[in-house]
Structures are given as structure tokens and as C-alpha cells.
Amino acid sequence: MKVEWNEDEVVAALHDSSTRERAFTRIVDHYKERLYWQIRRMVVSHDDADDVLQNVFLKAWAAIDNFRGEAKLSTWLFRIANNETLNFLERKRQAISIDDEGAVSVAARLESDPYFDGDETARQLQEAIAELPAKQRQVFLLKYFDEMKYEEMSSMLGTSVGALKASYHHAVKKISDFFTAHD
């Protein structure tokens, strides 16, 4: 039988050493899919998304004493995931700039990716998204695919609604320009 999710109850159990591990297991079960897809759209490869997602929960576990419930659990986890994803992309960008052989286009990599079912146009979209600056890419993905409201994004990312709207407009224009140019 599936236990009903009650965040206050889970957070209280998290701060009791006898119930902590069980509470954390429930948190992982509750948030893993949502966080996975947010990470996966940013890093593209499944293996990379799996690594980043595990690190997100490992860091959350290590920092659990500092979570006092002032923010929502989802906001706290999203911020850790956001930070881990951007750090991962930055490390990867630096590694690729050192090793030029790693600089294969996203569309070419997706062609042989067993966990990507999209067609040529979907691969082109990923290519266009990959060309955006990391933060703009993130805003585009959250708004376009997850249909997240700017206000929610603002509290999760810690940036103003104005900056988010502008980032989204920049991103949409660049992606539509990309398609127009490749049409």
C-alpha cells in the first residue's frame, strides 16, 4: 500500500535519528523522477544524469541537519540539483576545452544514444539548446517543457522574475533562429 505523502511528517521524521533513514528513503522515492528529468534535460546523457542525481541525494543526506523546514523540501532539493548540474556542466566544458576530441556535437552523440528516441528534428533541438548559456538553457527547459511558472522558478533559482523572463525570451529567439537557419 502506498503511504500518503505528508511533507511536515517526513521533515519531522528526518530530524529523529531513529526514523531518519526511512524518512530520507521516502524523500528519494518522492523526488527522484522529477529531479532526474530536470537534470537529464540539462546534461542530455542518462549516465551523466544518474551520476549527478546520486550526488544530489548524497549531498542532501550529508546536509540534512541544516534543513530546518524554512523552505519547502522541493525548493531545497532543486537548489542542490541546480548547483550540482551547473558544476557538472562547467567541469565537462573545461574537460572538453582541454581534450578537443571530446567536442563531438550533441546531435551526433544522440544519434548513437540508446536512451534517446527522438528524430532528426528532436536532435537539432537538443543541439540548439546545448548552444545556449547554461542558465538560459535551464530557464528555457523549465518553462518550455515543465511549464513552470516564473514565480516558482524565481524562488527556486533565487533570481528575479524579470531576469527569468528576459532569459526565456532570449533563448526562444535563438532556438527559433536556429531552426529558421537550418530549415
Binding site: W37, R40, D117, G118, T121, L125, Y144
Partner: peptide, 23 residues
């Protein structure tokens, strides 16, 4: 307008998937 253009080309479907039993 630009958003509609993207939507026309690729829609909003998720082309990614995970290995069986991953979650």
C-alpha cells in the same frame, strides 16, 4: 511567435528515456 515556431517543429514530447527498471 517564436515559441509557436519551436512548438510547430518539435512539440513538447520528451524524446529521452531511461533503462528498464531504472527508477
Amino acid at each position: 511567435e517564436n515559441e509557436e515556431l519551436i512548438s510547430k517543429y518539435v512539440g513538447q514530447d520528451n524524446p529521452f528515456r531511461t533503462p528498464d527498471g531504472y527508477f
